[in-house]
Structures are given as C-alpha cells and as structure tokens.
Design a protein around this nucleic acid. Structure first.
Length: 951
RNA sequence: GCGGGGGUUGCCAAGAGGUCAAAGGCGCAGGGCUUAGGACCCUGUCGUGAAGACGUUCGCGGGUUCGACUCCCGUCCCCCGCACCA
C-alpha cells in the first residue's frame, strides 16, 4: 500500500481489473442464486444523486450476497421508450433556451456535444454511454454482458409476446378515459408541460339533469345524494347561457361549460342562447323527487365552474343557505318572482352527530358567518362537508338509500342516476385554470377507443394480493401502502400515439405505453446475454418466448421457428430456470404506486406462482443541501460529478450511511467532505497495521483480557452488520461495521492491544467491502487471497463472545469515567488514587434484591427480612437499610451480571493502565479490608461501582 | 380531502416501558502529540455542581403505570402519493 490514499488511482485500477477479468459475470452453477434488479434509468439525462442512492444500495446488497456465497446476478439496462426523449430531441433541435440551460449547466453537457443530440436515437446513444461510464466509475458490480435498451429490436419482440399473452387473457380492453388536454397542441398535457395548475387533479362530478319542459338544466355536484334536498336552482343573471343539443337532449349551460363539453364524448350542437335573467323565476323539475322548484338569481355562480347551473341544498350547504337568506325580503319582481322566499322550506336528508336538523344553519351560526361574501362561508362549507362525509347517514326521505353512510353513497347512487337517465358524469379539474406551456387553458378530454390494461379486474387484483402476501417487503411498513394501492388501482391506458416504443401487435396504430413495457423485463436479462453475443434475432416468434420463459412447447420447434440452434434454445431455457424469479427488486419510493405495482400485476398475469418476485425494497429520495432535487429546474448533482469530486468509495459510503429505508437522504458537500477524512483514516489505520505487522503476533497463544474483549466485540459487529445487511439497513450496517468498529479499535489500541490487529483488520475489510469496495480491494490485496469481492463474508463465532471480558472492560471504563468526572468537578490534580471494590455483604444484598424484585414489585420488608437472616449482612445493621433504600430505587434497572465478576482482581490487574491514564499511583483495595481510608470513602462502594478516594 | 410515513438534545440520526441526559456521525470548544497541521489521540458539548450528584428535557395537552421518549386518547405541524407520466 502506498503511504498516501489516492482515491482516483486506486479506484481506476480496481475498476479496470474487475472489468478485464469479468469478475462480476455470472453464470449458473451449483450455488444458491440471488437475482437482484433495479429499475433501469430513463435516458433523458445523466444519472443523478437519486439514482446513485438506489443503485448503490443494490450494488452493496449484490456485493454482500456474493460474499455470503450466493451466485449473484446483478444486471442493468436502459429505458428509452416513451415521449420525453422525443420531446427533448425536438427542443434541442429547436435550441430551446430553457433546455439548453438545463442540459449544459445542470447536466454538464458541453455545447458542441449537445448540438448533436437532435434526434431521439442520438440522445439514447449518448446517455446510454454516459450512464454506463458513470456506473463504472462508482464501482457497480454489474454483469454488463446483459445490457440492453428498450428500443432494441429483440426487446420489442419480447414486449409483443408479452402483450399477446395479456390480450389472450382479456386483460387488455378498449374504452374511453379522461385526460388533461391542450386544445391548441391537440395533445395530452404532461406535468412538465404545465405552466399553472400542476396540482389540479381530474374529479368526476355528477351532472344532474333538472328540466324545464324539454330543456335540461344540468347541475354539476360532487354530492349527488343531496339531490333529495334541493329547494331551488341558482343561475347567474348576468351570464348569457348556451342552448345546445347534447346527444338527443337540449341542454342549457354556461358558455365555458359548453366549450368543455365539446371535448367529452358527447355529440354537441350549438342551438341558441338564453340569458340567465330569462331562466330565473321559472320552475324546474327535480329528476328524482319530481319536486318543482324555483330558479333564483345568484351572483356567486361562476360560469367557469361546472355547468353554470347550481342546485341549492340550503340544509346542508352553507353557501346555499346564506344565498337564500340574503334574498329574504329582496324585491325579485323584476324576475317575475313574487312569492316570499321564506316559504321555501329547507329539506334535511343527512343525519350527522353534533348537528341538528340543518347542519348548514348550525355551522353558519357556529362560525358566525355573516353572509355569502364572508370568507368564513368557505370554512363552514368544508366543516359541514367533512362531518357529513365521515359521520353522516342518509335519512328516510332518501328512500332506498336510507341508512347508508354518506361515505358509501356516491358511487352506487350516481350509477343509479345514470341508469335512470337522470345524471351523467362530467370531468372537471379540481382547481382552475390549468394552463399549458403554450399559454392555452387546458380542458378534460375524453379519449375514445383507447386500449386499457384492466388492472381493476378483481381476479387479477387478488392474484397480486396473494403475491404480496408471500413477498418480503422492505421496510415492512410499506406493505399497507402496497395493499392500498392495489385496491385503488384502476384500468390504465396502455397505448400512445406518440413516442418511442413497441407497436401493439394486434393494432399497429398504437404504441405500447412506456410503463406497460417495463414490467417483466427482468426476464429479458437472461436472453440479452445471448442477443449481445450475436444470437440470430430475425425470427423471435412468440413460440420461442413461450418456450424459454414458460416452458411451453419444445426446444426443437422453437429452434426451427427461430433458426437458433436447439442447444442454445435449451441453454437459454435452463439459464432462465436457474435465475428466475427475481429475488429482490430495490427502487425509489416514487415507483410504488406505478412501476412496482405493474411489475407485480404483470408477473402474476404471465408467470406461474413459482416465478413471482420474492422481495421488494423501497428507499427514499435524495435532496441537495436541504433542497429538493429537480431534473428540469435544478439543483441536481450527477453521479459523475459526485464521484469526481469525492471519489467512488466516499460517495458510496456517504450516500449509504446518510439514511436508510424510506427516509430521505440529504446530500451536503460538507458532509461528504467529512466522510472523505473518515475513509482516509480507515486507509491509514489499515496501512499502519499492515506496516507494523508482527508475523508472530497473530500466533501468540496467550491472549490478554483486552484481546479477548476485542475479539468478542468483533463477533458482535459481525452479527449486527450481517443482520442489518440482510434487512438492507445500510445505515445501521455502517454504524456497526464502520463507526462502532473504529471506536472499538481505538479502545483496543489505547488499552495496549496489538496481537489481534491483523485479524480484526481482515474481518473489518470484508465487512466494509460492500460499501467501499475499492479501498477494501486495496487493503485485501495485502491481507488475503483473490478479490475481496469474492472473499468469504465473516461469520460470527458465538463461542468467542466473552461476557467476562466485556464486563471487565466496562467496569474499567466506567470506573475511569467516574474518576475523570471527580477530577473535572473538583479541578484537583491527583497524587494518589485508591479504589475500593464493593464489600461482599452488598453483593449478597444485591443478589437478594434482584431475587425479590424479579416478580415485578419491589418488596422492601421482604428484602430486609431476608437480609437480616444472613449473618454477613446482619453484621452491617446500620448501613444495610440505607443500601436497601437505594436498591429499592435502582434495582429495577440492574442485572445480576456484575456479580459474576471478581472486581477486585479485575481492577488490580489494570493498575498499570490506570496509573498511566491518571498520571499517578493507583491502588485497588476491597471495601471488606479497606486498609487506609481516612475519609471513609469505601462505604460508597457498590457492586459495579468501586468507591474512589483521591488524594 | 383520502392513503402512507414522520416530528428526539446546534445539525443528521439511533432508541420503542426501567440499564436513557438518551448510540453514532457532523459541527463546536479545550487539551495532548507535533517545526506545523484541515492529520492523529483524549476530553467536553441541556443546566447547575470544589467527589462520582442533582435538576429539566424527546412537537403540544391529557391519561395508564411504582416507572413513559417509548403504551392509550386528543391536538398541531412536516414529507410523499392520489396516475395514464418517466
């Protein structure tokens, strides 16, 4: 080893060796296999700190498993299908200033290279190469022979095969669905295309059809059950409404609503206009109750929201109640309304604890809302909604829905209304406006004849739940999340008109959507090795995939169909049988509700239970200096940048030690700096141990207390690290394997330990190898044989755990601490220190106290009785009760351990060490025979806590 | 709003009924070693303290218990997801 630690040199050297010698190439053998995968990265930019975390976790696990003797397959590929790369290439070609900025500054791409990235293919090629270099530079132990990209021809064949099966299973269906749509671009709008309203979601309103004669007045509501409580309608008198033929009906809606409706799957025809003023004063019919109700004027009706016609439920909606109240006594004769609005009776239809007959009225008076313009009206609305939704029950006037909780009513009721022709569904943004990057206001559009993956299928879902039940989820807390999301998942549109991807085999108008084509691709890693080696892929027909992945058919015909020789076909099949299923998939938590779910859905659809995934691990995000990372807006830290600034081992150690599980990690360059010095310390410590290596030292038969202590601690570090790594707790593993180990070693050396150093180092290096593989190879090359990457993981030897030695050391340490504390507090400089170990009678008394309290309660009189029966304790009649008092307080927290130790002997043997530490003579005595003790200090001695007298 | 996860001593972060003033790291302070040190070692880092102690703490308010950071109830705040997008 060199004197100075040079990360760049060491890392490059070992990376080259690993690659040259194919150290991480995996082939089936007789060992137990472990197939580990990580979602391949999407190639629209450089790998960043988020990838770094997820991938490094995977790599550390792969290395750990390898050392434990498992045959690990850890492959990697690249994702290119979808639309963003296409969009990006266009923006680059157009020299979009924003993109230019992001890619030159944030992603660090030189301008002359960026210019060339004006086609999707160029982008894919560029980032694929960059990603591979980056992953190499951080030392991932990937079997690169299996690399592929999702736009590769063979991969497309594989996707076609897979969709053929899903189609045959009737899991792919046709339907319509609502999307966020830009009327100007004539395209669905994605998140990053949105200027304003990114938070908006699509909500399904009920459009309830009130009627005036043959005209329909559709009222949009999220609470269709309140149709039973409608007392009137609201219309804005100042808005000119549109009369339109909608399918076979004549509707009256606001102009905005008309505009929106034209994007739904309705046939629309503009017929004429009618002013709000004209509508007011007319009677409309409630399609459910058949009540005839008055149309009243309301300025609060926003023509841009819903249909522009609002149904009024004053008993349950504070706004309606306030608006109605505000009209009491107003002169509406201008609208032809002469009746007294006070005659309109509120209709209550929901019973809710805490409110009387009319919750809206109660809420208004509770919050002291003045009128409809009072900001507290909004608050009252939310309050009523929340309480009614959670605790409300429908009343008898709702007929067959009576007794049903409000929470459960929406779906079935809406369905009934639709069936009766009394309502339709109308999709609307949860907030408006939603504005596209081009400046146009977006609408909700119904896409027709779209292909769906029928994830709502109950049978399919139940297979997924069964799969989950048999899986290991890490951390276990995400299980509930997964189960909830399975429940929540609806059908998913799986075809696109734009982007890169594979064509739907039975409908070549459509491209398969990019999440749908990334679900069981782990299987493809097996085949990819052969494809990369030059397999003939001209005729990869479904029958071939059926055989290699499902064992259907036979190798002979598969060979005949494809032109691949039978032996190879057979070999691929055996490989697959060896490697599959996936043993662990690790991923960021952002993929739970989409990719990881689809990963499960497609596995259970296509493969038999024996090939279902075994485990999923989920990790949190990475922020930068406390700020959220953003690929498009910054800040961003690329993997390459992290490695070139800090080195691979430092980057790995930092990112793995910073957080674990779903916690988010915060990357701070200051933190990374300090890790660098930790790694340097590790290096120089190892270097010194190796330099100082005493060839006979390791054979030294006679082990001192401190040696036994060190070896004992070592076993525990091994166990703890191993356990942590089995649970993918990288942070905990590092606490043990790195920091605690360092502290142990420090104590060991301080106490004069030396003979075990080499052995400890040998274990230590191996425990650290999954985290900092390069430096560990470097050290290992002087210590062991072969690559540390393939060295056996240390096994804890329980027989080497020496409780006596640990007790003795902890007694020594706590005694030392006590002396130090006294010295600190008194400020004294000691000339002589006397220690008195506890007298026998106190030990006996502790033993009795422990016995007595073992049942739970501490029985003082019982203890005294037993104590006095013992002549040795009885001899200390005066002091015994005092000690008993103390025990009463402390015995709950004590154990009998300390009684197993001969304190006098233990400390006596360490007088040299203690004298050296305190710079003065130290003597050890027993309180049983204290010898000189002018201050009577020996009376303070207790088991585990020697009395101290400092002169 | 719904669902999931969190709020711990300057910061990051362990702990999940007594061994807890609470691991470890960072930062900071003091000392040692050194020609020097952003290297290394030791010590301290809630407050008080001339004998190893005492006092006050684990978002906030209650409760259970001999005993709660840990259990229960309520409450406030933070993060993530709510899709057709990788």
């Amino acid at each position: 080893m060199k004197e100075e630690y040079s990360a760049a040199e060491i890392e490059a050297r070992w990376q080259k060796k690993w690659e040259d010698e194919g150290v991480f190439h995996s082939e089936p053998d007789e060992r137990e296999k472990f197939f580990l995968t990580i979602p391949y990265p999407y190639l629209n930019g450089n790998l960043h700190a988020g990838h770094t975390r997820t991938f490094t976790i995977g790599d550390a696990v792969a290395r750990f498993r390898r050392m434990r003797g498992q045959n690990v397959l850890f492959p990697m590929a690249f994702h290119a299908t979808g639309t963003p790369i296409v969009g990006l290439s266009e923006l680059i070609a157009n020299r979009d200033p924003l993109i230019w900025e992001v890619y030159t500054k944030l992603h660090g791409i030189p301008e002359e290279e960026l210019v060339a990235l004006n086609t999707p293919e160029a982008i894919v090629a560029y980032f694929r190469k960059a990603a591979k270099v980056a992953m190499g530079s951080i030392g991932f132990s990937i079997d690169w022979r299996r690399e592929f990209t999702t736009t590769d021809p063979a991969y497309k064949k594989f996707i076609e095969w897979q969709f053929g099966i899903l189609h045959d299973l009737d899991y792919v269906t046709k339907g319509s669905h609502p999307v966020r749509w830009c009327p100007h671009d004539q395209n669905p709008v994605e998140d990053h295309d949105i200027l304003k309203g990114e938070e908006a979601t699509i909500m399904d309103f009920a459009l309830i059809k009130f009627r005036i004669g043959d005209r329909v007045l559709p009222c949009a509501t999220l609470r269709p059950e309140t149709v039973f409580g409608v007392t009137n309608l609201w219309v804005n008198p100042d808005v000119m409404h549109v009369v339109a033929r909608v399918n076979q009906e004549l509707w009256v809606v606001s102009p905005d609503a008309y505009h929106k409706l034209t994007f739904t799957d309705r046939e629309m025809e503009w017929v004429g206009e009618v002013s709000g003023r004209e509508l007011i004063g007319q009677m409309a019919e409630n399609p459910i109750t058949r009540d005839r109700i008055l149309i009243l004027p309301a300025g609060f009706v926003d023509p841009d929201n819903g249909s522009g016609i609002v149904m009024s439920v004053p008993a349950h909606a504070p706004f309606d109640y306030l608006a109605l109240k505000d009209l009491y006594g107003a002169d509406l004769s201008g609208y032809g309304i002469t009746e007294d609005l006070r005659d309109i009776r509120l209709i209550s239809l929901i019973k809710v604890p805490g409110y009387g007959e009319f919750p809206a009225v109660d809420a208004v008076s509770e919050l002291g809302v003045r009128d409809q313009h009072d900001p507290r009206a909004e608050e009252a609305t939310k309050l009523v909604y929340r309480r009614e939704f959670h605790n409300g029950i429908l009343k008898e006037n709702t007929g067959k829905y009576s007794g049903i909780p409000v929470q459960k009513i929406k779906e079935p009721l809406l369905q009934d209304l639709i069936d009766q022709g009394a309502a339709e569904i109308f999709y609307e943004f949860s907030e408006s406006p939603v504005i596209c990057r081009c400046g146009t206001t977006c609408v909700v559009k119904m896409v027709r004849d779209q292909w769906f993956l029928e994830y709502s299928n109950p049978a399919w879902k139940s297979r997924v739940l069964a799969c989950l039940a048999g899986m290991r989820l890490i951390p276990e807390e995400i299980r509930q999340e997964f189960i909830n999301k399975v429940d929540w998942l609806k059908d998913k549109a799986c075809a696109r008109r734009k982007g890169l991807g594979t064509l739907l085999p039975w409908d070549r108008e459509w491209l398969i959507e990019s999440l749908a084509d990334s679900t069981i691709y782990m299987s493809f890693y097996i085949l990819a090795k052969y494809v990369n080696a030059g397999l003939n892929i001209d005729r990869l027909e479904p029958a071939f995939f059926d055989y290699i992945f499902l064992g259907k058919g036979d190798p002979k015909s598969a060979s005949k169909i494809t032109g691949i020789d039978e032996e190879t076909v057979q070999k691929i099949r055996t490989d697959f049988q060896y490697w599959y299923p996936v043993d662990l998939r690790t991923s960021g938590k952002d993929l739970v509700a989409n990719h990881l779910l689809f990963f499960l859905f497609h596995h259970v659809a296509i493969y038999p239970e024996s090939l279902w995934p075994k485990a999923i691990a989920v990790n949190g995000f990475v922020s930068l200096e406390g700020r959220k990372m953003s690929k498009s807006k910054g800040p961003i830290l690329t993997l390459r940048q992290a490695v070139s600034e800090n080195g691979a081992d430092v980057t790995r150690l930092y990112i793995l030690g910073n957080a674990e599980y779903t916690q988010d990690a915060d990357w701070r360059s200051e933190g990374a700096q300090s890790i660098r010095s930790q790694v340097e310390r590790f290096y120089s410590l190892a270097r010194d141990i190796l330099k100082d290596k005493d060839p006979q030292a390791t054979d030294l038969g006679e082990q001192e207390l401190i040696d036994r202590w060190m070896i004992s601690r070592l076993q525990q570090r091994i166990s703890e690290t191993t356990e942590a790594m089995e649970g993918i707790q990288t942070r905990r593993a590092l606490q043990s394997a790195f920091y605690h180990m360092q502290n142990d070693l420090r104590w060991y050396q301080r106490r004069g330990g030396r003979s075990q150093l080499c052995q400890v180092l040998s274990v230590w290096v191996r425990l650290m190898a999954p985290f900092t593989p390069h430096i560990c190879e470097e050290i290992w090359s002087e210590l062991g044989q072969g690559y540390v990457a393939h060295a056996p993981w240390p096994l804890a030897d329980k027989s080497l755990i020496d409780e006596q030695a640990e007790l003795a050391e902890s007694l020594l340490q706590s005694t030392q601490n006590d002396v130090e504390e006294i010295l600190r507090v008194t400020g004294a400089i000691p000339e002589k220190i006397s220690l008195y170990t506890a007298p026998e009678w106190k030990r006996e008394m502790l033993r009795l106290a422990l016995d007595i309290s073992s049942g739970g309660r501490f029985d003082m009189s019982g203890l005294m009785k037993a104590a006095m029966a013992d002549p040795e304790i009885a001899a200390h009649k005066k002091e015994a009760p005092k000690y008993a008092q103390k025990l009463a307080k402390t015995v709950h927290g004590q154990t009998a351990e300390i009684l197993e130790l001969d304190e006098l002997q233990t400390l006596s043997m360490e007088t040299d060490y203690l004298s050296r530490t305190f710079g003065c003579p130290v003597r050890v005595l027993s309180a049983d025979q204290p010898g000189p003790d002018p201050m009577g200090k020996s009376r303070n001695a207790e088991p585990g806590r020697p009395a101290i007298w400092i002169e």
